[in-house]
Structure formats: C-alpha cells, structure tokens
C-alpha cells in the first residue's frame, strides 16, 4: 500500500481579525481537518462560501500559514512536512504543486503572449536551459491541453473563456507538477465549455498521472468528475466518502440538505430549500 500524496491531521488555519494584544480575536477558517489524498486520486472538496474549502487548498500549497496540526506531502520521490518548510523545500514544492484559478479573465496577464504565459513558470523556476528547450516544452504542454499552436503568439484578449482556461491549465502543468489544486476552475464558464474543460482535466489526470484536488461549490460537477468527495462546513469536514456512496447514501444531515437543494432538471420534481438556518 503506497502512502497517500497528502495527509493531514488536525490541520488548522487561523486568521487574526483584530482585537487588542490581550484579547486577540481569531477566525478558524480551517478547523482540525484530518484527511488524505491518495496518489492519482481526483478528490472533490465541496462546501458553501465561507466553508474553508479555498483556505484548505491554499494551506496545502503553503500559500497561507498553517497554524496548527500536521500536513505531509509524499509523491514517492520527495517528502515534505508542509508545516515546516525551508526556502529550498518551498522552491521545490512550488514545482510539484500547482494551482488553477477560478477566473480565466483575471488570471492571465493581458500584456504577455500565450507562449510567454506558459513559459513563465519554466523560466522563473529555471527548469529549462535554453530558449529552444523552453519552446519545445511550451509546445508539448499546449498540445496536451488542446491549444492551437498557431495561437501561441497571440495575447489572451483574443480568446474565449474556455480557451483562456486551457491556457491557465497549460501554465499550471508546464512545470510538470504531481499535485494540482483546481479552485472553482469551471465556475465562470458556460455549461458546454465546462463539459469540455472537465473532460480535459480528466484525460490529463490519466495521461500525466496527476493527483487533483478539485474545489467546487457545484455538487453535480463534482459528482461527475471526482472519485472521492469531501464536504466542508464552517471549516470542518462534515462527511468524506467515495462519490457514489456519498450521493447515493449521504450520512449527514448537512449533506442531505445540500443535495436536496440542487435544482432538478425535472420540472415536476421540486428542489427543497432547507429550513432557514
């Protein structure tokens, strides 16, 4: 049995929200979260706004400080204790763990060509030695993300939302990461483009052996893409189960309410609003 890629125990992230020296107020955005992400898994994290799902993702990327508990990363080649990273560790970890953002309109610099956007992480991390090598790598990853190679010289404004999201994905995958966090990466897209991006992520995961943490508020999207689902509420994990099990037989009241609130495509089957809480 191989070790999981990510393992956390009682992971907490607290933010200071003002107060004086002796009665500092803090907000526990992530509260004692213990879970594992197996290698090669596609794990969905769902929850409403404010449930801590984005903060959990950021903590696992070391983008916010972990204030309590344990978190480990182990991809078989290297291991990191995410609560205690040296600058050298962090540099190596940045190559192995990447993030795809929600809004493809805000995430891409309007002043850089698509080629430069995808090449930037390679150049910043010093992963390629020559311009030719960088170009070759950019073309390879752009092809995998089904981008038209003739488009590499254009600027992002020339692209639709779906194409931009493919550019963001190519940039995230340029450094050949092992772990990718996609934070609401289809929330801003139309349904037909959403289907295209979800299919692309699934096929990239298989081809490149990636491990995905897929953060979303949309349960039906998660149901179709992820093999394991974690439900968060108020910074805690309420329920965690394989996708089929969770949707067929939710154990917790909160998960049941969440599922009942999804609007059904059948006009005769009314969705139910949970009791006002």
């Amino acid at each position: 049995m191989t070790k999981p890629l990510i393992r956390t125990k009682d992971l907490s992230v607290e933010f200071s929200i003002g107060g004086k020296i002796f009665n500092k107020k803090t907000l526990k955005a992530v509260n004692d979260v213990s879970f594992e992400i197996p290698r090669g898994a596609f794990v969905g994290v769902v929850g409403e706004s404010g449930s801590g799902k984005t903060t959990l993702g950021r903590a696992l990327l070391n983008a916010v400080d972990i204030t309590g508990g344990e978190a480990e990363y182990d991809d078989g080649e290297v291991q990191f204790d995410l609560t205690n990273m040296s600058p050298g560790d962090l540099k190596e970890y940045r190559r192995r763990a990447q993030l795809i953002f929600q809004d493809p309109y805000a995430a891409l610099s309007p002043r850089m060509t698509v080629r430069d956007i995808i090449a930037e992480p390679l150049e910043v991390m010093g992963l390629t030695k020559s311009r030719e090598e960088t170009d070759a790598r950019v073309r390879e990853i752009a092809g995998k993300c089904r981008l038209n190679l003739e488009h590499l010289r254009r600027y992002p404004h020339a692209f639709s939302g779906g194409q931009r999201q493919r550019i963001s994905i190519a940039r995230a995958l340029a450094s050949n990461p092992r772990f990718v966090i996609a934070d609401e990466c289809v929330a801003a897209l139309d349904v037909s483009i959403q289907a295209d991006i979800l299919n692309l992520l699934k096929s990239l995961q298989k081809d490149l052996g990636l491990t995905f943490m897929f953060i979303s508020h949309d349960l039906s999207v998660v149901a179709h893409t992820c093999d394991h689902v974690v439900v968060m509420y108020h910074g805690k994990i309420v329920e965690s189960a394989p996708t089929r099990e969770l949707f067929a037989n939710p154990q917790q009241e909160y998960t049941r309410n969440l599922l009942a609130a999804i609007p059904s495509l059948d006009p005769d089957q009314k969705s139910r609003a949970p009791a006002v809480g």
Partner: peptide, 20 residues
Amino acid sequence: RGLLNALPRLDDLDAPLTPI
C-alpha cells in the same frame, strides 16, 4: 440537446459530459 448533454446530471453519474 447540446446544452442538455453538457449538463452534469445527478440522476446518472455515468453519463458522459458531451461538450458542444
């Protein structure tokens, strides 16, 4: 039909998502 086929549906998790 294309819009409906692209929509993830909870009543059939195995149905492929078909983009237009």
